[in-house]
Design a protein around this nucleic acid. Structure first.
Lengths: 211, 211
DNA sequence: CCTCCTATTGGACCAAAGTCCAATATACAC
DNA sequence: GTGTATATTGGACTTTGGTCCAATAGGAGG
């Protein structure tokens, strides 16, 4: 599950902090890429957001601040767990960051052990969410391969309707539903209704009570 | 959904704070119960934890601290969203509280509007989680009404196995499985396999791929 | 000992679902 | 206009699932 190289991105405008933390993180056997500004980081990130990674981010920086970068990444649906570090933070700032999904928010100076443990948690989260997302996208891909009619049939089937009921809802006959249904099972790559219901649930296909 | 009375519990060792915040919260049309210590609150709570509610909690208090109370409540599986208020908090404290599920963490003095909005969010969360929990307990109740054999049959059925496969797994015959299966549907109060799969999923009944 | 609950099985039968093969109609793309 | 994709339906058949009635058997509890 953790096969690709895990990268720690480090963004801090203070060169000495970058040097120190880079050395620390590398000493833990991790790959580091350091940037002096959020913009520099984003320029790289936009062309290369592959692989599991996390971000160690200074809150206060010239240009785009850490919290602003956090929002940029959220808007971009980025899947990059963030650990904030700061020399001059306050409580509202830390609370905001945590509410917005930060893994941790650490005042400088940060103890080596504390930071490395936070990075470990962040990378674990990145891994986990990456797996989740990959599975979801895989299911989504299959759903999109359905024709609109097949999709209608699936929606009704996973709500527990019988073929004849589905046929009535769609203004057609049971025979036709069977054909669509078989194609749904094939395209969704499942071999049982139970599986179909479960993956439909995962991508949030509306599922009311039967009837 | 918000039919029962919503209560705001307020725990702060400072009497003047209790007076002020009680007045504020009441002015917003909410019911308040104020306590001078975590212990006093818990004594009441243990005998009466009904109804949707949230907790406005001072972090630093004699006796049990706010963060300790938070853990007590978590250990008790309490379902009581917490808003921390504090006069002398620091960042690690706020981060810890947020990680442990606090709705908000507000330094004193707290602006009226900010606190009331936080309370609104907390009560909304309480409502939502209450509904979720009630639904889960309802399903759990039904699952527990199954005999062990029925439970075995259900587990295999929601994994997508055919009746004959279930029979083989359990070392019996298809006919018997049908009987158990029918009783499962009845006791679980569902009318379709789709529904059964969905509620089984919600209570975390192991569901591997078929075969 | 008797009774209720649980588990089990049988037979008969109907309903629903799945699977072949085949065919028609429409729409959009090239 | 030719062709591919989609939607549709039919027939015939098998498999699976669901239901009714009925019966046996072991164990727990009164």
């Amino acid at each position: 599950m953790t096969s690709p190289v895990q990268t720690v991105f480090l963004v801090d405008d203070d060169a000495s902090v970058r040097r120190g933390l880079t050395r620390l993180i590398k000493s833990a056997g991790l790959t580091v890429q350091a940037y002096a500004s959020a913009r520099d980081f984003l320029d790289y990130w936009h062309v290369n957001n592959q692989g599991p990674a996390c971000l160690v981010l200074d809150v206060r920086m010239p240009g785009l601040s850490g919290l602003e970068l956090q929002h940029e990444l959220q808007a971009a649906n980025a899947l990059l767990p963030i650990i904030f570090i700061t020399g001059h933070g306050d409580i509202p700032m830390s609370v905001k960051a945590m509410k917005d999904g930060a893994v941790d928010f650490l005042p400088k100076p940060v103890k080596d052990k504390v930071l490395l443990e936070a990075i470990e948690r962040a990378l674990a989260r990145a891994d986990h969410e990456r797996v989740q997302r990959a599975e979801l996208e895989d299911i989504q891909r299959r759903v999109e391969s359905l024709t609109s009619r097949e999709r209608e049939v699936m929606d009704l089937v996973v709500r527990g309707l019988l073929n004849k009921q589905v046929a009535f809802e769609l203004g057609t006959v049971e025979k036709t539903v069977k054909v669509h249904r078989a194609r749904v099972m094939e395209k969704m790559e499942v071999r049982s209704l139970a599986e179909l219901v479960r993956i439909a649930e995962r991508v949030g296909i509306p599922q009311g009570k039967a009837q």
